[in-house]
């Protein structure tokens, strides 16, 4: 491979490990970390007994494979030019996650109707373009729709109203 091509080592100082594809280097590293975690998590599972698999054999087998693949991807990031790291959005992931956690916490004590509207509004905060008037109207209508669809049409049991009211 031609060392002088494009954005190789900076002219100022020769770096020991020229990162050419940061996306792949980080991606491979994280996969290796996941594999290492799986090794750790399956450490107390029995392995091979004679020629029969134990419960820990397959997880360790796949974790080992993932470790190798992660390493290969990482090495590829050092050898080949690749994409730079992409920017992560903060607002969207944050509010969607908060909305889901809120749903999980509230669904039992508050029931479907209140939880649904609350979750909708919190999730809506994930976008700067949300207009509150229409969001509240759609949130209420949608929750009522779900409150009819899931328990009555699909026959899945749901608690509708807050526990204190019942």
């Amino acid at each position: 491979m031609n060392e002088d091509s494009g954005a190789g080592p900076q002219p100022g100082g020769w770096r020991l490990l020229p990162v050419r594809g940061p996306q792949d280097v980080v991606g491979g590293l994280v996969l290796m970390a996941v594999a290492a975690f799986a090794f750790w998590a399956s450490r107390d599972l029995a392995g091979m007994r004679g020629f029969s698999f134990g419960p820990g054999t397959a997880p360790r087998l796949f974790a080992g494979l993932l470790l190798l693949l992660g390493a290969a991807i990482m090495v590829g990031g050092f050898l080949r030019h690749g994409d730079p790291l992409q920017r992560y959005g903060m607002r969207g992931p944050f509010f969607v996650t908060v909305a889901l956690v809120l749903f999980a916490v509230a669904i039992r004590p508050l029931g479907l109707v209140l939880t649904g509207i609350l979750t909708f509004l919190v999730a809506a905060m994930g976008s700067p373009e949300t207009r509150w008037g229409e969001a509240i109207v759609v949130g209420v209508l949608l929750t009522l729709g779900c409150a009819l669809l899931f328990p009555y049409v699909l026959g899945l049991p749901f608690q509708m109203l807050p526990q204190v009211l019942q």
């Binding site: 969607v96 909305a99 809506a124 976008s127 949300t130 229409e134 949130g139 949608l142 929750t143 779900c146």
Partner: peptide, 10 residues
């Protein structure tokens, strides 16, 4: 902006 919270709740 209206669709994504709907998908989340659904």
């Amino acid at each position: 902006r209206l669709m994504f919270p709907s998908i989340v709740i659904f």
